[in-house]
Simulated scan of single mutants.
Amino acid sequence: MNTAKPPAIRIQGLRKSYKDLQVLKGVDLDVASGSIFALLGSNGAGKTTIVRILATLLKSDEGTASVNGYDVATEAAQVRESISLTGQFAAVDEILTGRENLVMIARLRRVEGPKQVADDLLERFGLTDAGARRVATYSGGMRRRLDIAMSLIGEPAVIFLDEPTTGLDPEARLEVWQVIQDLSDGGTTVLLTTQYLDEAEKLADGIAILHEGAIIVNGTLAQLRQLLPPAKAEYVERQPTLEEIFLSIVGKDKNGKTTANAKEAP
């Protein structure tokens, strides 16, 4: 008996054009349930177009796509109930407090106990102390964490994160990375579009590279590494990266946690 779970996302022969511009040229892609899958590509490669089709915001010209077992074209309502989409910029109301943002979304989605849901999410995302403050006072990382928390209301099976760390500073990026990892650990399937290669390397279980509307490489990081010649072992004096210097100075480790080693520049 085959007990393997079906893919959380399945794309076959997906095509999309805008007049004479071919954006997607027959994309095929499977994303395993509960995984973090990174879709890499430069601006204009077609990443956001794929996400918009999967989220039922855009219709493809050809091909099929399903999310959580539902066809995006013929079962759009069921797809929408299964997903959440977080765009490149945090969609939060700056006039409201963090807690009020969460309560509002919970009520709009008709979730039982909206106030308790809000409090639970504030605690889960490390925002309890800031919950009563207006979002206008939040840092970029805090806004993004709140944005992702809002997207989880209703417990979607699949979440799309479209360039989630664009414009964030190094500390905020680490905060968001930890949130994404926690989502996957909890069983949520995450489709992550990004231009940052280190982001995919850090987080992704599977990686696909989209170039000029087509998937040119698809596999795990280990499989992608096999495409290049083996590395030669040489002694090199390694200097700290700028990211490591920055995090050391501000007293953070690579996971965004506070350390006791904060240093001051001479």
Rank of each mutant, 00 (worst) to 15 (best):
A157H: 10
T86H: 05
P6G: 11
A132T: 05
A77V: 00
L228Y: 13
S84A: 13
L54T: 04
T258M: 03
D28Y: 14
E244D: 15
F160M: 02
L108E: 06
G126R: 03
T86E: 11
A214T: 15
V176R: 12
L24A: 05
D119N: 06
R173N: 15
I83Q: 01
L39Q: 08
L227D: 08
G251L: 11
I249E: 15
L54F: 03
K5L: 11
I209P: 10
L54S: 02
G187Q: 08
R107I: 13
P156M: 12
R109T: 07
V67I: 03
A55K: 00
D71T: 03
I50F: 02
G219V: 14
E212D: 12
R15C: 09
V250M: 11
I105S: 07
S184K: 07
T188F: 12
G44W: 04
E201H: 14
E244G: 07
A132W: 02
L24T: 08
K254C: 01
T48N: 08
A136Y: 14
V27R: 07
Q178D: 12
N2F: 14
D162L: 03
K254Y: 04
G26N: 04
T194H: 09
D147M: 01
K47P: 01
V179W: 01
V217R: 15
Q239R: 05
D93M: 05
L96R: 07
L54G: 00
A90D: 15
A8I: 06
R110Y: 08
F160Y: 09
T193S: 10
K19T: 12
T128L: 02
T56P: 00
T188M: 12
T241A: 09
D169G: 10
E234M: 07
F89R: 09
I207V: 15
K5M: 12
K115D: 13
K115T: 14
Y138A: 04
A45G: 08
E234T: 13
M150F: 00
L168V: 06
P266I: 04
I50A: 05
R10D: 09
G140C: 10
D129F: 03
E264C: 02
L24E: 02
T258E: 13
P230N: 09
D93F: 11
A172F: 12
I159G: 03
L121I: 01
S151F: 09
L14M: 11
N255Q: 12
E155G: 11
D253G: 03
P164T: 05
R124H: 04
W177N: 10
G131N: 00
A8N: 05
D28M: 11
V103S: 08
G46K: 11
S35R: 05
Q239S: 09
E175Q: 15
I245A: 09
S35L: 03
P266A: 10
A32R: 13
E244I: 07
A214F: 07
A157R: 13
E94K: 01
I216R: 14
V236Q: 12
T128E: 03
K25G: 13
L39N: 09
K252M: 15
T49C: 08
Y138W: 03
V250C: 07
D182P: 06
L228P: 00
E175V: 08
G26V: 04
L102S: 04
R10C: 00
L85G: 00
G113E: 14
P6N: 11
D198I: 02
P156V: 02
H211T: 04
D30L: 08
L221D: 12
A45F: 10
E264R: 13
T56Q: 01
F160G: 05
L183N: 14
Q181P: 01
